[in-house]
Design a protein around this nucleic acid. Structure first.
Lengths: 165, 165
DNA sequence: TATTGTTATACTCTATAACTATA
DNA sequence: TATAGTTATAGAGTATAACAATA
């Protein structure tokens, strides 16, 4: 259960095994949190005019990609508790962007779809999103670096269940 | 102001300029959030027995590295609003780990120090932290990959002011 | 009995305004 | 007048328990 870190890589990082005081600049979780905050802040500013928050964006994008999924399926896939999903979906429905349809076979479930207005809204949303995402890719140094970052983050996430109930 | 992404890197990522529906698996902010949540969850579990949360850890580590800093200096460096720092510091003081000393020159300010018990606590804390951090480094593939991840995150953060008031 | 969606609720983080004591 | 620390408070985001309708 000991770490067993690969050797020959101490060019710049801090100690792995000693009792050295950690510097926040080399702590994975700290840097991850700061970077995530920055990216979300850019996202929120970019989408302020459209009144779309990150969670709403991910729900709309997922309904657009795969219409007809059940509420619980979408909530689970995005790591949102189904209890908290209700108010989020209420908002999208009130704004006329998406709607719930009673399932034919299982009448407990709701399948989710975009309204025609929701379809139009999502098209504008994607354009705005490209603007934001390209800005982040530029900061990273290009799409290749983006791919590399995603790969490293996937390694952290590998084999983990969705953080849902 | 258009993106101007480096060419020749479309091996795996999704489109940068079209109106394609984004897949959550290739969205920087989404992956960043999930990875950060996972790392913090591991941190919280690892430190459950010591009753130390991430913010408390970073404050204790910073006081240990640089004793005598003012409250506001530490709060700002860690991206914590000074109003929210008060309760956090109250907790550390109540537990006998750190204390505030009235500044000699400027008697409005408080300089922060560890108590002797705080020093002992921090030593145990660092050992526990190494356990957690090594687990994360292992997941990434080694210290070199950790360094690479930190570098990519630093690019996102480059030139940004601390997200403080 | 179990599951889907729902309500109510609570707890943590974060954000802002206003106060006090010093400067 | 401005600053350091503080208080109070409000808003997100997230977590759990329990209920009604349906399976």
């Amino acid at each position: 259960m000991t770490a067993d870190i690969k050797p020959g890589s101490r060019r710049r990082g801090t100690s792995e095994t000693s009792a050295e005081l950690p510097d926040k600049e080399s702590i994975i979780g700290y840097k991850l949190r700061r970077a995530q905050l920055l990216v979300f802040q850019d996202f929120i500013q970019t989408f302020a005019k459209m009144k779309v928050r990150p969670a709403e964006f991910s729900v709309l994008a997922m309904i657009a990609r795969t219409p007809g999924l059940k509420q619980t399926e979408i909530a689970e896939a995005l790591g949102i508790k189904r209890a908290n999903f209700v108010a989020l979906m209420d908002g999208l429905e009130t704004r006329g962007l998406a709607d719930r349809r009673k399932g034919d076979i299982d009448r407990r479930s709701h399948s989710l779809h975009l309204t025609p207005e929701g379809e139009r809204f999502v098209r504008k949303m994607i354009a705005t999103w490209n603007e934001h995402e390209n800005r982040m890719i530029e900061r990273l140094g290009g799409a290749q670096d983006r791919d590399h970052l995603i790969e490293l983050l996937d390694r952290l996430l590998a084999g983990e269940p969705s953080p849902d109930e």
